[in-house]
């Protein structure tokens, strides 16, 4: 098992290298540059800026410089937020996004699973129809509708929570963003869990467990649920990578100082280093969570073995 993990981590290195290389050159293919949008920038000033940031060097030189920096943990300076390095931005913003994302994920897994199991056990009855309706609504109503509605009702009308802002990480400030992030996930997890559970309860070995006179709890939780969590695990990996790296809409609507906004802002502003930093961070999250998914699979299903 340890050897398997080591091998997976080693194969992640060429993957990351490929991602970095591809994104680096793709970015440069896009028209414009970090300083081309600022009006009134005289050619001299622009040239100066480009010299400072070594953007006037040949492309291969810039690429090598970036790689060398990356190997030393240096993501470079941000071009549009000139007082900060990319590493600084992530050091401050990433914990915020991760906190919200992790809370939303945990919430979604717990609530979604419970709803899904209840629906499966009461298939084609009231509870089931309710869950299915909720799941459909949850995954069709966009975040940018839910978030303002939440603000309208709970902040402006009832005044229970602040409209927006991070508030130094106070709980009341987190409720809105976490719920908004979690709602579509709850819907997806509930739907996945319902299907997986219905499937699992039909298995022949469930009939065996019932014929042995085992308790309903044992039949449902021990024998059906364990098999049914496999599709949830598969989903949770990529979902975690997406949630923990922040959401543009939620962080913008609730004015959260996370990293979700950087991806879009940086791309629009041709903030090369910040885009690259975001790409690397997301890639690492995806790689790590996919590995965790595979390890969790082996933990749940003895037929899956890694050498």
């Amino acid at each position: 098992m340890a050897r398997y993990v080591l091998r997976r981590l080693l194969t992640a290195i060429p993957t990351l290298f490929l991602i970095v290389t591809l994104s680096f050159f793709l970015l440069r293919v896009a028209p414009g540059g970090p300083f081309s949008q600022e009006h009134g920038l005289s050619p001299e000033v622009k040239a100066n800026l480009e010299r400072v940031y070594q953007l006037d060097a040949p492309l291969w030189r810039q690429y090598l410089n970036y790689l060398v920096g990356l190997l030393h943990g240096d993501f470079g300076p941000s071009y549009n937020l000139p007082d900060f390095t990319v590493a600084d931005l992530f050091r401050v913003g990433l914990p915020v996004s991760m906190q919200l994302g992790a809370s939303a994920l945990v919430l979604a897994l717990i609530i979604g699973s419970i709803l899904g199991i209840l629906a499966a056990l009461r298939q084609n009855r009231g509870v089931d129809y309710g869950v299915v309706a909720l799941a459909t609504a949850g995954s069709t109503i966009p975040t940018f509708v839910i978030a303002p509605l939440y603000q309208l009702v709970f902040a402006l009308t009832l005044a229970w929570v602040p409209v927006a802002g991070w508030g130094g990480g106070a709980l009341v400030n987190k409720i809105g963003p976490v719920l908004t992030l979690a709602l579509p996930q709850i819907a997806i997890v509930a739907r996945l869990m319902r299907g997986a559970m219905i499937e699992a309860l039909r298995a022949n070995h469930i009939r065996t467990a019932r014929a042995l006179g085992l308790s309903s709890f044992s039949v449902v939780v021990k024998h059906a649920l364990r098999g049914a969590v496999l599709p949830i695990i598969s989903y949770a990996g990529p979902a975690a990578a997406a949630l923990l790296t922040g959401s543009v809409v939620v962080e913008t609507v609730f004015a959260i100082p996370g990293v979700g906004r950087y991806f879009v802002d940086a791309a629009l502003n041709r903030d090369y280093t910040l885009v690259m930093g975001t790409v690397v961070v997301i890639a690492v999250f995806v790689i790590v969570f996919n590995l965790l998914v595979d390890l969790a699979y082996a933990l749940v299903d003895p037929r899956v073995r890694y050498e």
């Binding site: 298995a203 022949n204 070995h205 009939r207 065996t208 467990a209 019932r210 014929a211 042995l212 006179g213 085992l214 308790s215 309903s216 021990k222 024998h223 364990r226 098999g227 749940v300 299903d301 003895p302 037929r303």
Partner: peptide
């Protein structure tokens, strides 16, 4: 189910046609 389970599996055992799928693969 609770009352039935005092008989089912305890007094009346049952085996099935599909030996390949009648056992839980995860335990």
């Amino acid at each position: 189910a609770a009352a039935l389970n005092e008989v089912r599996g305890a007094k009346i055992g049952m085996i099935f046609q599909e030996p390949m799928t009648s056992l839980d693969p995860l335990y």
